[in-house]
Amino acid sequence: MISVLGEGVAALCAATALSARGLAVELVVPQGSPPPASRLAGGMLAPFCEGELAPDIVVERGQAAADWWQQQAGGVERRGTLVVAAPRDRGELERFARATRGHRWVEPEGLEAELAGRFARGLFFESEAHMDPCAALARLRSRLIENGVAIHDGAPSGQIVDCRGLAARDRLPDLRAVRGEMLEVLAPDVMLTRPVRLLHPRFPCYIVPRGAGRYMIGATMVESARPGGVTARAVMELLSAAYTVHPAFAEAEVILTGAGLRPAFPDNIPAIRREAGRLHLNGMYRHGFLMAPVLAEELAGMLTRELVDAH
């Protein structure tokens, strides 16, 4: 038996990959666990854009994510990512182009008609994708249940795979929180069909369409473990950035605000670790949906080999 701890993206991906290899798996969610940070994710599968800051390993390995999600949960939209900047921040666009690959220069209105006249140039990352992260997590969860994986809050009964995110700080002392804040709005007047990233030296943002006029707007990055709701500053910054992308966001209805704590290792790279007989899949930082699948498969492969070797 393998006991996966947690119920966020890392735990559900790990349990899915293990279960798919025919291993006996249970999902243990201790009572009183904080809600997973991944419920607030953008759901962008954007390895090349993340390459602005993330090292090559994330760009390379993250490319497998879109296929994995489509196969396991469906609902992946492959419409690419559009990156724009206000005219006075042209330099940011040049810098982003130099720091990333897998893009080409475009006239944004050719892709998103709504942006006509607002941005003369943009970068298009054609191979990227997006999805609704909460729907995808719910789908993984129900498929696990269909496949006979028990979900309970009792004591773990097998080899522990710890995917508790920040709660695993008790065993991973170098794990830290990077606070992120996001909004969801209902803006039926806005017709964007793919994730749009606005570059700005201080207030960057991304806007991810969720369908039926809903948009997720994210996300701040603050080196803080502060719990609690979004700050007024975050709301102002995110909304003013969204307003720069499309003025009709000013009339949007704010339907959700959320603040969560991303678990991160010092190098901000998600990783598998082995500590005191337990395996950890943690440090997802802002790459949970991109990196959890590939790390979960790697971890499942490791455990399968070990179990074979043990017999």
């Binding site: 830290r176 606070r179 603050v222 080196e223 803080s224 473990a225 502060r226 719990p227 500053r233």
Partner: peptide, 13 residues
């Protein structure tokens, strides 16, 4: 200003 008292992990680094 923004990180507040809860930025201890980063401060330790």
């Amino acid at each position: 200003r923004r990180e507040g008292r809860d930025g201890a992990a980063f401060r330790d680094i």
